[in-house]
């Protein structure tokens, strides 16, 4: 169980973070002063409609965007720029087409000038865990979309980060592959117990995977609802078919719909 006591240092914390993009003619207010943290070992899902600014939150956590106001803390220290101990995954796998799957997974080590020999065992182990054993020498174009995204997970984890940031990592996949990837992620996460933020617009995915769900309002993003998912781990994908699970997803759907109506009014 994640350690949620306020005394423990959190993996990451947002303090009153707001973000405005200087677009013209009207500046775009993407995020409105949100505060939340992710405990060590916690998997937090950020749920919200498309274009609500949830990706901006993740970009700030990754150190790719600076908040306009407020501040971020990473492991108790102020966050400035991309952090060595953070793994990031995006909607597209963005594997480099001329590198083999293994070399793609090792790419973070290449950039950080870490000898491949030091991490190649870990890379192979990760590839085996996600079911890509035997594909180490393949090129990205020879893989299916789901396999590419598995390789991208391995790349995010290869340097053993303590925080994993995922921006709608499975939304480009078909529904069946998507469920499969959820299982892969659940499996990996239950083995490693990393802190993670998972941005998604799938309610089912959020409840099935996360310890806690933040529902964001429409832009500018604020936390509309916070929900601690009551299901114990390890979770089974069949959990999604239980009435308890359906009750929670129905509730969350209501919260999101209410937010949309507020937008209409």
């Amino acid at each position: 169980m994640p350690d949620a006591s306020p005394l423990a240092v959190e993996a990451i914390r947002f303090h009153e973070v707001g973000k405005t993009f200087p677009t013209k003619p009207v500046p775009l207010r993407a995020v409105e002063r949100v505060s939340f943290g992710v405990a060590r070992g916690e998997l937090l899902a950020i749920l919200g409609p498309s274009g609500c600014g949830k990706s901006t939150l993740l970009m700030m956590a990754a150190g790719l965007e600076e908040p306009t106001e407020g501040r971020l803390e990473r492991g108790g220290m102020p966050l400035v720029g991309p952090h060595r101990q953070t793994g990031v995954m995006f909607q597209d796998a963005t594997l480099l087409p001329w590198l083999s799957v293994l070399d793609n997974v090792l790419f973070p080590a290449t950039i950080r000038r870490i000898p491949h020999a030091k991490v190649v065992d870990r890379a192979m182990e990760l590839l085996r865990t996600v079911g890509l054993k035997g594909f180490e020498r393949a090129r990205p174009h020879e893989l299916s979309g789901g396999m590419r995204q598995r390789a991208a997970i391995c790349r995010a984890l290869v340097l053993d980060p303590d925080l994993l940031l995922m921006d709608e990592p499975f939304s480009a996949l078909d529904a069946i592959t998507r469920d499969e990837m959820g299982d892969v992620l659940l499996d990996l996460w239950q083995h490693t117990h990393k802190s993670a933020i998972f941005v998604t617009h799938s309610i089912r995915e959020a409840v099935l995977l996360a310890d806690r769900v933040l529902v964001m309002s429409r832009r500018p993003a604020t936390v509309a609802e916070e929900l601690v998912v009551p299901f114990p781990r390890p979770r089974d994908p069949r959990l999604a078919d239980t009435p308890e699970f359906t009750a929670i997803t129905a509730h969350l759907r209501g919260v999101i719909a209410a937010g949309m109506q507020g937008e209409m009014a």
């Binding site: 790719l64 995006f90 963005t94 480099l96 790419f107 950039i111």
Partner: peptide, 13 residues
């Protein structure tokens, strides 16, 4: 590809 450039930034290249 813009995604590849973003990856480089994430990795601090």
């Amino acid at each position: 590809e813009s995604g590849a450039l973003r990856l480089c930034r994430v990795l601090g290249a």
